[in-house]
């Protein structure tokens, strides 16, 4: 059963077309990753799924419901939650307030007890946030901010979590912690669409992978086989990823 389906999506900005007839599916409970260079359209694809951009052509469906072209708040309430590139945390509000704002998008379990229980679960997943709970989110280090962004997304009880470059600007230790957390979320049954430049780590974590080049899917397959593809190894797993060769 696929949780998220993108079919034949063409989209761009103004007159400039970025994606051309992109189709992909994210099965429930799996991690699907999109690998591609800068300007390939990965962020554009996530923005289109999240309702930030309107597809020019093509459809996006979650479960049986069409979400393509709907505004982003509407999409978020259907359980498709984007953790954007650059985190987008609310720096002037406390960590707790940021997390509670995340819970606004959920449709069920809006009572205080459920929200408190989820808050507790997320703080267990990201213990570093617990100590800073009532401090301003803007005072967190980059790694903690990324954890907060992820935790805030989870507070919405997403059906599908869209992650845009969760490792961006993080030191190696934090990168490992973030990827460990994503792995644990997968074990918990969460469906994730992951865009990540650290292709080796993303492929090691994902079930299925798509290669996006210049706005079109050029290769797809189970992550383990994509990882062994010679062209992918050359273009995306070349030097620069020694640390994380397959475990």
């Amino acid at each position: 059963m696929s949780a998220l389906t993108v079919s034949g999506v063409t989209v761009g900005y103004g007159a400039i077309q970025v994606l051309r007839e992109v189709s992909l599916t994210v099965p429930a409970g799996q991690i699907v990753t999109i690998v591609g260079g800068n300007g390939a359209g990965k962020t554009t694809l996530l923005k289109t799924v999240a309702g930030v951009l309107r597809p020019w052509r093509g459809t996006v469906t979650v479960g049986a419901e069409a979400i393509g072209g709907r505004p982003s708040y509407w999409v978020a309430r259907r359980g498709v939650v984007l953790v954007p590139e650059g985190r987008g945390i609310f720096g002037d509000q406390t960590v707790r307030e940021n997390l509670l704002l995340g819970a606004l998008a959920r449709r069920e379990g809006r009572d205080a007890a459920s929200v408190a229980a989820d808050l507790e679960r997320n703080l267990t997943l990201f213990p570093a946030l617990r100590d800073r709970l009532d401090g301003p989110a803007g005072g967190l280090s980059g790694g903690q901010q990324q954890m907060l962004a992820l935790a805030r997304g989870l507070m919405a009880r997403p059906r599908v979590l869209l992650l845009d470059e969760p490792s961006l600007g993080l030191s190696p230790l934090f990168v490992r912690q973030i990827f460990d957390a994503i792995g644990r979320l997968r074990q918990g049954g969460l469906t994730i669409l992951l865009v990540e430049q650290m292709a080796a780590q993303a492929l090691a974590l994902a079930d299925y992978a798509y290669i996006l080049e210049r706005g079109a899917i050029t290769l797809e397959g189970p992550a383990a086989s994509v990882r062994e593809d010679p062209a992918v190894m050359h273009a995306y797993l070349g030097r620069g990823d020694r640390r994380s060769t397959p475990r």
């Binding site: 690998v35 591609g36 260079g37 800068n38 590139e85 470059e165 961006l168 600007g169 430049q197 650290m198 292709a199 080796a200 050359h234 273009a235 995306y236 797993l237 070349g238 030097r239 620069g240 990823d241």
Partner: peptide, 16 residues
């Protein structure tokens, strides 16, 4: 300041 953030491995090699 973090010139390689958000670059793919091949692009990091170019930057290198």
């Amino acid at each position: 300041d973090e010139p390689a953030a958000g670059l793919a491995p091949a692009e990091i090699a170019e930057l290198d």
